[in-house]
């Protein structure tokens, strides 16, 4: 252990110099995560409601989508979007956009299941009370059920976000540079594993800040309890 601290103090200047380089790649990591989780969230609400729909076809379609994206590796989905779609006549020039598509579709499937579970965990009596007051199903969802499920959604959404932050490391496989890929490049160039120290610290910083924000949100949505 003491050798480790010695190595850090000897190479301190080097490590400090790596930080700005790493931070530049962190931009891609963050942007990709934020964009795909946000888009995924929007899509997932419709997927969840669709899966719960009484319309058999809609429900089956949504289930199939969720089954596919949860049942196959994210890396393969990324390959299909970036390398596979051109064979179907759809070429995506931007690596970032291809990654965004794959990650958004993947996270929408996971988030849909999270949302469905949260909605179904709300007491059936809430829907009955809404109905007895003349509310239609969509109105009851909008005014009564969904607002109550938000608080229960926050912790699992936080999980999903953290997973995606780390999974963005996979995009180096389509040669899109982000934090993990950059770390590896520096490690090879410097023939030293020390670059992991600032890289890991950056990951922890991102997930730490995010966890903090979510905890605050959870408190805010719990005022009525």
């Amino acid at each position: 252990m003491s050798e480790f601290w010695q190595a850090i103090s000897v190479n301190f200047d080097k490590i400090v110099n790596w930080i700005p380089v790493l931070l530049k790649s962190t931009g891609t990591t963050l942007l990709l995560t934020l964009c795909s989780v946000s888009a995924g969230l929007v899509v997932s609400v419709f997927l969840a409601l669709g899966k719960m729909s009484k319309l058999k076809i809609l429900s089956k379609l949504c289930s199939a989508y969720i089954f596919f994206f949860r049942g196959t590796p994210l890396l393969m989905q990324l390959f299909v979007v970036y390398y596979g779609l051109p064979y179907m006549g759809i070429t995506i020039d931007s690596k970032f956009f291809a990654a965004f598509l794959a990650y958004a579709m993947n996270s929408s499937a996971y988030l849909a299941e999270i949302i469905r579970a949260a909605i179904q965990s709300i007491d059936k009596g809430q829907l009955e009370a809404a109905k007895s007051l003349g509310m239609s199903y969509p109105m009851a969802m909008r005014l009564i059920i969904i607002p109550q499920s938000i608080r229960r959604l926050i912790p699992p959404i936080g999980n999903e976000f953290i997973m995606i932050v780390k999974d963005t490391a996979l995009v180096s496989s389509i040669a899109l540079v982000e934090l993990s890929g950059k770390t590896k490049d520096i490690m090879i160039a410097s023939s030293s594993p020390l670059v992991f120290v600032p890289a890991l610290a950056i990951y922890l910083l991102i997930t730490g800040v995010f966890t903090f924000i979510l905890n605050r949100l959870e408190k805010r949505f719990s005022v009525y309890e």
């Binding site: 007895s132 009564i144 009525y224």
Partner: peptide, 14 residues
């Protein structure tokens, strides 16, 4: 028809 339930079912977020 108005209804009152055994377990109230007030909307907890309101």
């Amino acid at each position: 028809m108005g209804m009152v339930f055994q377990r109230f079912h007030l909307f907890p977020h309101k």
